Amino acid sequence: MTEKGAFRRDMNYLADRVTADGRDGWPVEPGRYRLVIARACPWANRASIVRRLLGLEDVLSMGICGPTHDERSWTFDLDPGGRDPVLGIERLQQAFFARDPEYPRGITVPALVDVASGQVVTNDFKQMTLDFSLEWRAHHREGAPELYPEPLRAEIDDVAEKVFHDVNNGVYKAGFASSQDAYEQAYRDLFGRLDWLSQRLAGQRYLVGDTITEADVRLFTTLVRFDAVYHGHFKCNRAKLTELPVLWAYARDLFQTPGFGDTIDFAQIKEHYYVVHRQVNPTGIVPLGPELSGWLSPHGREELGGRPFGDGTPPGPPPAGERVPELPSAD
C-alpha cells in the first residue's frame, strides 16, 4: 500500500523457470512437477486453463487448494486428511519453506513444485503460462492451439500488459484502496479499459488475431469473476458484466469453449473473496447470487468468424478428479 492509499501488488516472485533445456536447473520432465492452484484465484486459473488447452494433464499433475486460507498460506483441505496426495503436505507454505526456510514473501498460487524435493520452483504466474506454451511444446497434445504465436507476440504482450494494469490488477486496486482518491482512480482506469476492450472486441471475436491466445486467457479470468465478486465486493459497480453487451457475449463465448468454463467453480470463487477478505467484508457472509445460468445462453459471437483453436482441436473433457460443478441450464 502506498502513502496515498493505493494498492501495490508485490510482483517479486521466484523467477526460476522450467525449460526444455533445463538452463535454470529445472528441465521439463513428464511427472516431475506438480502444478498447485486454487479454483478461487484468477492468476492460478490462467495456469489451469492453459494446461487444459495444451493437454498437459498427463505430464503435469495438479493439486487443488481449498478456497480459503489464513495468514500462513493456502491449504489442501479439499483432499482426504487435508493433505496433498502427491506432495504429502498440508500447506503450500511447506513447499516454499523447503525451497527457502526463511522465505519472506507471500505464499501464492499458481506454484510449480518439484515433487521429489518438495520445493517450489516458481510462482511467477506471468511467465509460467508462456513457458507451458513454449518450453513444454514436446508434450502438448495433438491438436493443441498456438496460444502465443510468434508473429503476434508483440501485440499479445501489449494488450495483456494493458489488461493487467487496468483490469486484472485494476479490480484489486479498487477493492483494496484505502483512500477515496486511490479508489476513484482505479475505478476510472478499470472502466476506461473495459470500454476500450468493448470497442476492440465489437468487430473481432478474440483480442489478437482470429484465434484464442494468451491475451484472451488473461482477460477471461477477471471477467468471469466480475459479477460474482468484483462488482460488489470490490466496489467496481459502474456496470455489471451482464450490462456490457460486447464483453458479456465475449465472456460467454469463452466460457462455453472447452478448457475455460470447465475450470470455473463459482462457489469456491465467492467463498474465497468474501470469507478471506475480512478487511473488505467483516461479516464473512457469502452472497447467494448472482444467477449463473446466463453463462450458458447463446452469445452470437460466431458471426464474427474466427477459429477458437486455429488449425487445432478442442481439448477433451477434464480428468475425473478435476471436474467442477455444472451450471444450471439457461433454458
Rank of each mutant, 00 (worst) to 15 (best):
R323F: 10
G88K: 12
S329I: 05
A98V: 02
L223A: 10
Q127D: 13
W74M: 05
P151A: 13
P67V: 06
F164P: 00
T213C: 11
P149H: 07
T283F: 06
L292W: 14
N45M: 12
C41I: 03
Q199F: 05
G25Q: 10
W74Y: 11
D124A: 12
D70K: 07
D100A: 04
G5N: 05
A182Q: 10
G55C: 09
L201Q: 02
L241S: 01
I285G: 04
A20F: 05
V208A: 11
R200D: 03
L241C: 07
W43V: 00
T2N: 15
L207T: 02
H233D: 03
L130V: 12
G289Q: 14
F125Q: 01
R8E: 08
N281C: 10
V59H: 14
N168T: 13
P318F: 07
G310E: 05
D311A: 15
T221Q: 01
E29L: 09
H165Y: 12
S178F: 06
H140V: 14
R91H: 07
N12I: 04
D24E: 08
L254W: 00
V28R: 06
T129R: 00
G31D: 09
E142F: 09
T122P: 03
L147W: 01
M62G: 02
L197I: 05
D227T: 04
P85Y: 15
F176K: 07
D77N: 12
D124S: 12
G300I: 06
G310Y: 05
A47E: 00
A320H: 09
R218H: 03
A6H: 10
G192R: 14
A228P: 00
T129E: 01
F176S: 01
D131K: 08
P80G: 11
G300S: 06
E326G: 15
I64R: 05
R23G: 12
